[in-house]
Design a protein around this nucleic acid. Structure first.
Lengths: 168, 168
DNA sequence: ACAATACGTCAGCTTTGTTGACATTCCAAG
DNA sequence: CTTGGAATGTCAACAAAGCTGACGTATTGT
């Protein structure tokens, strides 16, 4: 113990040791694998990837969103998103409609097929999240979210907050 | 509010609503981007990627590990790891030595150059983690880790636990 | 009229993952 | 001592998903 810490550091900052931080880093790595594992299995059957999942998720969360807005949420280039979006539109999972006020914009919605896949994916992902929440308990969940929120970049947090309380 | 919840559910399980779970899912997504952002910048300069970072991290954590063991920690194929490992060895960041008992095995260590890069990467990643920990506080950190641990797959948790308390 | 914006697309490149096939080396069991 | 299987490495081919750069079109705002 006491990995060369300064004595004045005091008990209250023990959670900031390099050792504690490293554990958190590894926990993030391993947990993220679990986090994506279940949806990945469903996606593989339909020969989609995580990029499709993300697009579907955020179109579901932001019905009618424009391509540009989705781009900024996902943090990828339009070429990268376009490849994914094109297959989703071709496969009839996403509908793209010309904007009413601004006809340059395309508004994105899930079709009923798209909504069905979205449900399958988020059910799978929620099941694991629910099990983890239940195992850890409500106080742990609050802490979990606090740390994650503090770990985000500014613009990610902006997007996160913007969607956060939509249904409350 | 009350998103169609069963009345008998009770106050104590409010944290398990689909809404709460979805927030957790999105928090994971956005936070993971922040989590990798700083190391990614350093890696880009040296034209390495995240795969190199992961290899370096776990070789640092498990000096002398075999390729097979590293494979099972990282959860990728040997061909995928080998490509990364080869460049790291060529660039003099990783040393691969033939096993003493079992000469089929290769034991992996960081060279001093490798250790230097490892330090730069983990310093950057720890800085952000430290800021997040500090912002959220010690109780939140405990909850954070509990939820992440509960989210891991069995074998991931095994690897995680095996490395967890090495220095305590 | 003109510049800027939103979107789509083409071409080409990179990283990182995958399978499958095959050679080498070596340990261990028969 | 031989042989089967394990650990490793390598070749080839491929896919997903990111990137840059360039270009075209429609629309909007100045």
């Amino acid at each position: 113990m006491n990995d060369g810490m300064h004595p004045q550091m005091g008990q209250s900052l023990l959670f900031l040791t390099d050792e504690q931080l490293r554990k958190g880093i590894e926990a993030m790595f391993f947990a993220y694998r679990g986090f994506t594992a279940d949806p990945d299995r469903i996606l593989a059957e339909k020969s989609y990837g995580r990029a499709h999942h993300r697009a579907i998720h955020f179109i579901h969360r932001n019905p009618g969103t424009t391509v540009n807005n989705l781009l900024s949420i996902l943090g990828v280039t339009k070429q990268s998103l376009n490849r994914v979006l094109r297959t989703l539109i071709e496969d009839g999972l996403v509908a793209s409609t010309v904007g009413k006020q601004d006809k340059r914009e395309r508004h994105l919605h899930l079709t009923s097929d798209g909504a069905e896949l979205e449900r399958a994916l988020s059910d799978a992902q929620r099941d694991r999240m629910r099990a983890a929440y239940r195992a850890a308990g409500p106080d742990a969940v609050i802490g979990f979210r606090q740390v994650l929120e503090a770990m985000m970049d500014e613009d990610a947090r902006r997007h996160y907050e913007a969607m956060k309380d939509r249904t409350e």
